[in-house]
């Protein structure tokens, strides 16, 4: 238990330091930017005020629109979270069965079409896949909405989640990585002594190797993929006109809206680091040797 607490405190401390570093760097870069715009040329006292605003989650007002940043950022944050988590689940849903299948049968048998499919899916750029899907869906079916019904009452927002989640789930590079990792790890674990021993007493191979063969590699790869997913989400959000953090960041960069940008960076750091913390905690639960 003390180890657990130590880990927790260490992670929290590193998160705090990272937030200070990121925001300070952004603040400095903004002050070095050419041109003149509101928010430029502020001193250290202003930075401390900014930190207080960030850590109390009262982000202040946007320079451009004059609205409260909380009302702008949190809906966008929620949308991105839905997109990211949904696409992660989709990736797992596709790649884990392929990985298990190819671990069981090897590449020689019928698993190779699936493996090749996963590699092709990972090598298509996300924006290209997005436009392809939009073209195919709008040209030939017309059932699914290709854009988020932004600011209008028409259409069901839930259905409009389908296409972006599908595209990001297939198109992020994690599918082939998960397939390769699980195929290798599971194959290795399936030949270890304890799995053979449990097979000798009639237990199923998959059940006894699921911890080391699937769960641990899957957890470590998924949580380390979160930063890339947020990056990939920027493109998908742009393609699908999805009101998420990525699009918001893009727009506020164009508008030079410093307060919003810093808040977005703050939330991204928070998201990525807490993902890492969660990974450590889950792995701690699964690895008995460290208890």
């Amino acid at each position: 238990m003390t180890r657990f607490l130590k880990l927790f405190i260490k992670e929290l401390l590193s998160m705090f330091l990272l937030i200070i570093g990121v925001t300070a760097l952004l603040f400095l870069l903004f002050n070095l930017m050419p041109g003149s715009f509101p928010g430029k040329g502020l001193g250290g006292a202003e930075y401390l005020k900014l930190l207080r605003r960030l850590f109390t989650f009262q982000f202040g007002t946007s320079i451009v629109s004059g609205r409260d940043i909380n009302t702008i950022v949190f809906p966008a944050f929620r949308n991105t979270l839905i997109l990211t988590i949904g696409s992660i689940f989709l990736s797992i849903l596709i790649s884990v069965p392929i990985g298990i299948f190819s671990a069981y049968r090897g590449f020689e048998s019928y698993s190779w079409p699936f493996v090749i499919f996963s590699y092709i899916m990972s090598s298509i750029p996300v924006f290209y896949l997005g436009y392809l899907v939009i073209y195919a869906v709008s040209r030939y079916t017309g059932y699914l909405p290709i854009y988020y019904p932004y600011g209008s009452e028409r259409g069901n927002p839930l259905i409009s989640y389908v296409l972006p989640v599908l595209v990001l789930g297939f198109g992020n590079e994690s599918i082939s990585e998960i397939v390769r990792l699980i195929a290798n790890e599971l194959k290795r674990v399936m030949n270890t002594d304890y799995v053979v021993a449990s097979k000798a007493r009639g237990e199923s191979v998959l059940r006894s190797s699921i911890n080391e063969g699937i769960l641990i590699p899957l957890i470590s790869i998924i949580f380390s993929k979160i930063p890339f997913l947020i990056g990939g989400a920027v493109i998908v959000e742009h393609v699908f006109n999805w009101p998420g953090m990525g699009r918001l960041a893009f727009q506020s960069t164009l508008n030079r809206d410093l307060p919003v940008l810093i808040v977005i960076a703050f939330l991204a750091v928070l998201c990525v680091r807490s993902g890492m913390l969660l990974k450590e905690l889950i792995l701690y639960y699964f690895r008995p040797g460290e208890k």
């Binding site: 304890y194 053979v196 000798a200 007493r201 009639g202 911890n211 080391e212 040797g289």
Partner: peptide
Amino acid sequence: MEHIRGKNISMIFQNPEQSLNPFIP
């Protein structure tokens, strides 16, 4: 062998520490 392993023939292996699952008590 589904009906044989465990129920009819059981086996213990030469390295007992490695033949226990390290992830489950």
